[in-house]
Design a protein around this nucleic acid. Structure first.
Lengths: 134, 134
DNA sequence: TTTATTGCAAATCGTTTGCATCTCC
DNA sequence: GGAGATGCAAACGATTTGCAATAAA
C-alpha cells in the first residue's frame, strides 16, 4: 500500500485529495490513467475532488517522482505510479490496453546512437502500436 | 520539386492553398513544421491562407500519405513530407532541433518483441530527447 | 454548373490559472 | 494562526467545425 510518508518525503502536505489520488493510482485496475480517469474514478468512489485539483496533484506527483507522465498518441496524457523500473509501452490500438515491456538491448542501442551524435540522453520514449495477430 | 500530380493522385482537387502548403513543406529550411509554422511561413511569403485550412489540408495530406504527423512532447503536432523512408527522431531539448536517424537493429528488436507477445505492429514511435554533451 | 474547398468565427478538448475559501501542522 | 491546498469558474492553446461565400473541374 502507498504510504503517506511518500508525500511528506516529497515535501507535500498530507491532504485528503492527495492521499485519495495516490491510493486510486495504486489500487486501480488500470495502471495507466488520465487525469479524467482518476477524476471519474474518485467521483464513482464517492470522493469529492475537483478536476483542477487532480491535474495539479498529478503534476506535483510527477515533479516529485512519484508518478510518470506519458503522452501517447491522442491528445490526453496518462499517468502511472513510478515503480523505479524504466520500461517502454505497447498500446493495443483495438482495445487501448497498455502493455509494459523492457528490452535491455534496445536501451543499449539507443544510448549508443545518442552517443554517436555527441549528445547525452535526457529522456526517451518508445511506444509500439499493435493489434492482435489475425 | 513536389508535383501537383501528387495531389490528383491522392484524390484531392488541385487548389491554391494545397499547392502552396505542399511547396512550403518541400522548400522550408526545417523539415518538421507545426500547422502554426506552416501558417506563419505562408503569411510571411505573402500567401493568404487561413489557419483552419492549413490544419484541414495537413490532415488530408496525412490521410493521403503525403505527410507524416508526429506528436513530440509539448502540445502541438509537427508534420514532415513523407519520403517513404521510415526513421526515428532525436529532439535536442535545448534548441528544439529535430534529428532523424534509423537503426536497423532497433527496428528488428521491436518487431521481435511485438511478435513475442503475439501481436502485429501497426505503428511505432521512438523519440530520444537529448542535449549536447557538456 | 456542380461540387469540393475555403475563410471566418464560434465551438471543442484537454489543461491551467486567479482567487476566495478552507485545511493541515 | 498562517502557509499552503482546494474548488470553482474563467482563461488557455491547439485543433476542429458550421456555414455561407468561392474556386476548381
Amino acid at each position: 500500500m502507498v504510504e503517506n510518508s511518500e508525500l511528506r518525503k516529497a515535501g507535500l502536505k498530507v491532504t485528503l485529495p492527495r492521499v485519495k489520488i495516490l491510493q486510486m493510482l495504486d489500487s486501480a485496475e488500470q495502471r495507466h490513467m488520465s487525469a479524467e480517469d482518476v477524476y471519474k474514478a474518485l467521483m464513482e468512489a464517492g470522493e469529492d475532488v475537483g478536476l483542477a485539483t487532480v491535474y495539479r496533484v498529478l503534476t506535483q506527483f510527477e515533479a516529485a517522482g512519484l508518478v510518470v507522465r506519458h503522452n501517447f498518441d491522442g491528445g490526453h496524457a496518462v499517468f502511472e505510479l513510478d515503480d523505479g523500473k524504466h520500461h517502454d509501452h505497447m498500446v493495443n490500438v483495438e482495445t487501448s490496453e497498455v502493455i509494459e515491456f523492457f528490452d535491455e538491448e534496445i536501451e543499449r542501442l539507443q544510448k549508443a546512437i545518442v552517443d554517436k551524435y555527441g549528445f547525452e540522453m535526457v529522456d526517451h520514449n518508445l511506444v509500439l502500436y499493435v493489434r492482435k495477430k489475425k
